Simulated scan of single mutants.
Amino acid sequence: MTAFESNSLRSYSQEEVQQILQLAIARQTDDGNQEFSYQQIIEIAAELQISPEAVKQAEFDWIAAQSEVQQRQAFDLYRQGKLKKRLGNFAIVNSFFMLVDFVGGADISWSLYILLFCGLVVVLDIWNTFQSKGEDYEAAFQKWNRKHQIKQTINTVLNKWFKAFQTY
């Protein structure tokens, strides 16, 4: 049996085919920045006996997935910004209490309890900020996403309204 015959007898699952083709396409292009036109994608799909409608639907699904990835990245940046603000507040408030404690008694005593308690709260906040899986994260993301979409809708309506008044 030749190498070609043994290769033709192999069979692969759809997931394995996708992985093999993905690796082959990556190796085909020495330049990782090579781009394919939509027409080239249609031609490749035609060779694989994939209908143009299936490609169009797949592209639509891919665009939607990329949009969600971008929204999640924006949400993560938003959460990290809130964390930085809370860390700054923590530093300012605890510095104030430690200064009052030091000036009032020439040493630091009771302010350490406040520092420890606030430190625990900040550590939990850090944990929650960088936890990007689970129900709590999904609930927070959905809440932020709804709020973000409402703001975008309001901004769009107001922009149209102001443009309408500018034309008069």
Rank of each mutant, 00 (worst) to 15 (best):
L124P: 00
G119V: 10
V121C: 06
S111F: 04
F102A: 11
D125Y: 04
G119R: 06
F102I: 03
T129Q: 05
F97Q: 01
I114W: 10
V122F: 07
D101C: 04
I114E: 00
L112T: 03
S109W: 05
F96W: 05
M98G: 10
L116P: 01
I114M: 06
L116Q: 03
W127E: 15
L99N: 10
T129H: 04
V123G: 01
I126F: 15
V103L: 15
S95V: 12
D101T: 09
V122K: 03
L124D: 08
V121Q: 10
F102N: 07
L112S: 02
C118Y: 11
T129N: 05
C118E: 07
D101A: 11
S95H: 08
V121W: 11
V123R: 08
V103F: 14
A106V: 08
V103C: 11
G105M: 09
S111N: 04
V122W: 02
V123I: 12
A106L: 13
F117D: 03
S111W: 01
G104F: 06
L124G: 10
D101Y: 06
S111I: 04
W127K: 12
W110R: 08
V121H: 03
D107V: 05
S109H: 13
G104R: 11
N128T: 13
G119S: 12
W110D: 06
L99M: 14
F96M: 10
L124F: 15
T129S: 04
V123S: 08
W127H: 15
D101K: 05
F102T: 08
L112G: 02
W127I: 13
V100N: 06
S95C: 15
L115P: 00
V103S: 13
S95K: 04
L99T: 15
G105F: 05
V122Q: 12
V121I: 13
S109D: 12
I126E: 00
N128K: 15
M98A: 13
I126L: 13
L115R: 00
G105V: 02
D125G: 11
L115G: 05
D101Q: 08
A106I: 07
F117P: 02
D125A: 11
G119C: 10
F96D: 02
I126W: 07
L120R: 05
Y113C: 05
V121P: 01
F97N: 03
F97T: 01
L99G: 07
G119F: 07
D107N: 12
D125R: 11
I108N: 00
W127C: 09
F96A: 15
L99P: 01
S95F: 14
W110E: 09
L116V: 12
I114V: 12
V122T: 08
S109F: 09
V123Q: 05
L115I: 06
L124M: 12
V100Q: 02
L124T: 03
L124R: 05
G119Y: 11
L112W: 08
W110M: 04
L124Y: 13
I108S: 04
V103N: 06
L120I: 14
C118Q: 09
L120Q: 06
L116R: 03
G105A: 08
F96S: 14
V100K: 05
F96N: 09
L120F: 15
C118N: 15
A106Q: 11
S111A: 14
L124A: 07
L115W: 10
F96T: 10
I126D: 00
V121M: 04
S111Y: 02
W127D: 07
S95Q: 06
W127R: 14
C118I: 04
V121F: 12
F96G: 14
V103R: 09
